[in-house]
Design a protein around this nucleic acid. Structure first.
Lengths: 221, 221
DNA sequence: GTCTATACATGGATAGAC
DNA sequence: GTCTATCCATGTATAGAC
């Protein structure tokens, strides 16, 4: 018998969820289903999967418990629908297209600034905590994230770094991974693990050093 | 009222826990307290804080439930003792001292290899998942990690990068952060979020590119 | 200290009225 | 579809015998 059971996400049977609008005041206009998704997101983000009870979600969404079970098979299913809708929102919000015309130093700096700015948000950070925290018990969730969010973004940057008029990298893909990885690590350390209280490192300083490293590497090849 | 309650870790009242030995066969020799800590670690790592029940822990440890409550005030307290003992084990196992005599390329490569090798371990990865997943609800846990594990390690590397006979960095601290951050990000992506199925990136290739970036940067200054 | 048995709250999920 | 009221398993924590 397996040491612990992996929870399945039931990804096949989800209706394609609408993107969840997060404005509070529009609450009245939302369908019950969307109110549940919206309330569920807030509760799952705050308490984790096991810490989030259906009672809390029902209260937050302003509906009764059985209403949740008419729209979603069980707690698992609700969770998977939520995750999908959040991924969908992230993917459709592309924020870098306008940068690809810039010259290398400006591109790297602006990309890094946008990236960090975007991640420095309660919802994003909480979602990342949830994603990582449950990635062992919900491996499908992590796979989906890699596939739908990380992979396309990485492919785009790799392709950009492969432009031989602007860059001279022997291994553009590896450089892309290190670049984005460093930015992720900054958020992980400063915001998620709250190291900023003990290990201060201003954003601009980190970005400047990282950008310079990339530029030196391009020049050296 | 706060949107959700943060759970306190009761760090003051913990006895300094002995390092938990993880060998199964030594189970008979352990005190009840240590058996609880050992079993608790396994269950918490597998199920997360809320998913881990005291029943499961008691079963895993081979003791009855009330025995747990004679040694620990409550589930919270048991968790905090566990976390402390794991941090203690990580800090006391220093693994890089022998490397600091190597020349720059060899040092960077060997350090990176050791770092990744050490983190590629079920217990380490599960603990990191737990740490990140609960960092919003147990901020003390994340602070303790930053303070006792990250900060000393980072100080050591920064001091090494400040050696002007070997390196020429304008900002050794930032370089150290980027270096270690990139390695952490690799593990996060490949092992924790399981991106390796979709985004293959061999360890040696990642390390080689990262090391080269650092060396180019040192040469350029 | 350690156990069996249990108290009491909360968990996920549903029956049946409207 | 939506609610009130409820079922039953499991959760944390403890009483009391040894």
């Amino acid at each position: 018998m397996a040491f612990f059971m992996k929870k399945s996400l039931d990804l096949k049977n989800n209706k394609t969820s609408k993107v969840i609008e997060l404005e509070k005041d529009s609450n009245e206009r939302l369908s019950k289903r969307d109110k549940i998704l919206q309330g569920g997101l807030k509760i799952f983000l705050a308490h984790g999967f096991d810490g989030a009870s259906v009672d809390k979600i029902a209260a937050e969404a302003g509906v009764s418990k059985p209403t949740i079970y008419t729209h979603f098979k069980d707690k698992n299913h609700l969770f998977s629908c939520l995750v999908e809708s959040v991924f969908l929102r992230w993917v459709t919000t592309s924020y870098t297209d306008s940068l690809y015309e810039l010259d290398p130093p400006a591109f790297l700096t602006k990309f890094a600034q946008n990236f960090l700015k975007r991640m420095d948000d309660w919802e994003y950070i909480s979602f990342f905590r949830l994603l990582v925290g449950e990635s062992g018990r919900f491996p499908d969730l992590a796979h989906l994230y890699s596939q739908r969010v990380i992979m396309p973004a990485m492919a785009k940057i790799t392709s950009y770094f492969s432009n031989e008029e602007k860059w001279h990298f022997q291994d553009p893909e590896a450089i892309a991974r290190i670049f984005v990885g460093s930015l992720n690590a900054y958020i992980m350390s400063q915001e998620i693990l709250c190291a900023k209280h003990y290990l201060e490192m201003p954003r601009d300083r980190y970005i400047k050093n990282l950008v310079d490293m990339i530029l030196y590497t391009s020049k050296a090849n």
